[in-house]
Every structure is written in C-alpha cells, then in structure tokens.
C-alpha cells in the first residue's frame, strides 16, 4: 500500500536535510573505493598545471604525431601550449627535457634495436599496414564499454516515455529556444575562466585577476538563472532588473585585461545576448 502523499513529501524533506547534514560533517560514505579514487585523481594530472614540471619528461617523449587521439587529449594539449608560451620556467624545462631526450636517442638506431629485440622486420610494419585491423580507430564501435544489458532496456523504456511526453507538450504549446541558457553554459565552462592556468592544488592561491573575473562571471550566471521565468520550460522570459545586474557583472569580467586578456568568445556573445534582451 503506497503511503499518503503527505508522507512522501515528509520523507523527501527529511532526506534532503540528512544530505545537507552529511555534507556538512563529511559523513557520506565514499562513492568510490580507494584505488578507483586514486586512479581518477591521477587521471586529472595530465591536465593539471601543477603537474607540468613533473610530467615534462612524458611530454618530451610524445611527439605530436603520436598523439593520434587528438580529440581526447586536445584540451589538455592546447592548455599546456598556452601555459608554455606564457611561462619561461616551463619553457626552459621543456627545452631541457627535449635536449636530454635527443642526447639519449642520438646514439641508438631504435628501429634496428627493435628488430634485434623482437625478431620482427620493420618491413612487416609498413605505414598503413594495420588500416583494416579491428583496433584501428577508424573502426567505430570498438571503443571499450561495460556490459549494460539491463540498463539498455531501461534506457529504451525511458526514451519511449520521453518521446511521448515531448510530443504531448508540443501539441499543447509552442516551444521557444533559449539561447541565453546555452550561452551561459558555454561561457561558464570556458577554460580560461574556470581552470586555465589555475592548478588543482593552487586553486586556493589564485592570481587576483583570474579570481576576480571568475567571481564576476559566476555572479552574472546566478543573476541569469534567477532572472529566468518559464512555464514548463516554454515561453521563457527574463526579469529585466536581474538581467541588468548580470550585464554589469559581465562587463566587469570583460574589463579584465592582459596578461589574462584571453577573452573567451562565449563570454562576449553572452554579454551581447544579455544586452540584446534588455533593449
């Protein structure tokens, strides 16, 4: 027998209160075991600026051609290059690592060593030899994925339900796109605002300009979220006074100049869109 609706509301309220208390006193059990937690922590290091110097030998050992999965590592590589261009200490460490690598490899014919050690001939590995191999990146669907039979069935049921609901809502009302929501998300996730040159372990000791810009953007996003009004996601409108406050914060963020003068284009567009809505 299902409990009365009032009891469900009470349970949800108590559950939320317990969650807040758990977070406050860090009582929530870990969602990941220790080894997986450490694996995830180490997985961040490649994109963490604080690890740049420690990982310089790794970066010196990877030539651009080897980073074939360019899409996967692109963000980390782009940010690293930007930091390299701005920081003479990193640049010096980069050149030093490359010089040392050059010295180590200059006395060895790696291909000849490979042939001696493995017994294979380099002719067996002509470029393009493995084009048809199932592990080649061009073979879509070979990426790893866990077996999710029951989850796939529940996903299909959810998809059907969602499709029916969307069709009903479209019949009942008109749908208007909300470009401000999309731009907010894009601007907020722009690396130079949120992460950029800030390292994982240095986030408590940020450069004043970057922290200021970050704070202004987050304030603007708060105002935009509060300003938004809609009926079941349709007929979106905005409170002009809160939008005006958001515009002020965005202008302050945009006013932050060099050496942190990388103005994310998403931030500029967001500001333009806010101003357009206020006109």
């Amino acid at each position: 027998m299902r409990p009365p609706r009032a009891y469900s509301f009470l349970f949800r309220t108590i559950e939320r209160a317990l969650e807040r208390v758990s977070d406050l006193f860090n009582l929530r059990p870990s969602l990941l075991d220790e080894s997986l937690s450490e694996t995830l922590a180490q997985s961040r290091r490649y994109i963490d600026p604080d690890s740049d110097l420690a990982l310089m030998p790794l970066r010196a050992s990877i030539h651009d051609d080897q980073t074939r999965d360019k899409d996967v590592l692109k963000t980390a590589e782009d940010r690293f290059r930007q930091r390299l261009e701005r920081d003479p200490v990193r640049l010096e460490a980069w050149f030093s690592a490359h010089a040392h690598r050059f010295e180590l490899e200059s006395k060895t014919d790696v291909v000849a060593h490979f042939e001696v050690v493995t017994g294979h001939s380099i002719r067996d590995f002509d470029v393009g030899r493995f084009e048809d191999h199932p592990t080649h990146r061009n073979h879509i669907g070979r990426t790893h994925s866990p077996d999710r039979g029951p989850l796939r069935r529940s996903r299909e049921s959810s998809l059907v339900l969602a499709t029916v609901m969307a069709a009903c809502l479209l019949i009942l009302g008109s749908y208007e796109s909300d470009p401000l929501r999309e731009l907010s998300g894009m601007a907020a996730s722009s690396e130079s605002i949120l992460f950029g040159s800030l390292g994982e372990r240095t986030r408590g000791h940020t450069d004043m300009d970057m922290a200021y810009r970050r704070a202004e953007v987050l304030q603007a996003l708060d105002h935009i979220n509060e300003a938004r009004t809609s009926i079941l996601g349709f007929h979106t409108g905005y409170d002009p006074s809160l939008l005006q406050a958001a515009a002020v914060h965005l202008e302050r963020a945009l006013a932050v100049g060099p050496p942190h003068g990388i103005i994310p284009s998403d931030l500029v567009r967001l500001h333009q869109e806010v101003r357009r809505l206020l006109e």
Binding site: S61, I62, H63, D65, Q66, T67, R68, D69, L73, E105, S106, K107, T108, D109, V110, V111, A112, F114, I122, F125, D126, V127, R129, F130, E131, H133, P134, T135, H136, R137, R142, T143, H144
Partner: peptide, 26 residues
C-alpha cells in the same frame, strides 16, 4: 646522428596511440 631513427618512427606504425590502453588490450 643526423638521420634519427627514433621512437616516433616505430610508433607511427601503430593504428592507435601508445596511450590508448583499451585498444592494445583488445
């Protein structure tokens, strides 16, 4: 050596990056 036979010479013949561990596992 002016004509280096380096690690890149070999790695270029792989159909994936050295770091794509899931592919070599397959």
């Amino acid at each position: 050596k002016t004509d280096l036979s380096t690690l890149e010479t070999l790695a270029a013949r792989l159909p994936f990056s050295i770091d794509e561990s899931h592919r070599v596992n397959e």
